[in-house]
Amino acid sequence: MRVIVDLEKCCGAGQCVLLAPKVFDQRDDGIVILLDEHPPEALHKAVREAACVCPGAAIKLEDPA
């Protein structure tokens, strides 16, 4: 799985950090920081959920199999 974040769409909600703190962090202004572009299998479910609930629709996943 490859995670892509769109910094311009991110609205700083931090829902992604709550769901997958090993993959996402936030700058002081709230904009997302991608910690792990290729998260391990065990985190895929949490990352998929983060992509789904992200209020900015800012998280995209490639080959989400």
Partner: peptide, 9 residues
């Protein structure tokens, strides 16, 4: 105050 707010949640 984004990060502090998230922590206070």
């Amino acid at each position: 105050m984004v990060k502090q707010t998230r922590a206070l949640r």
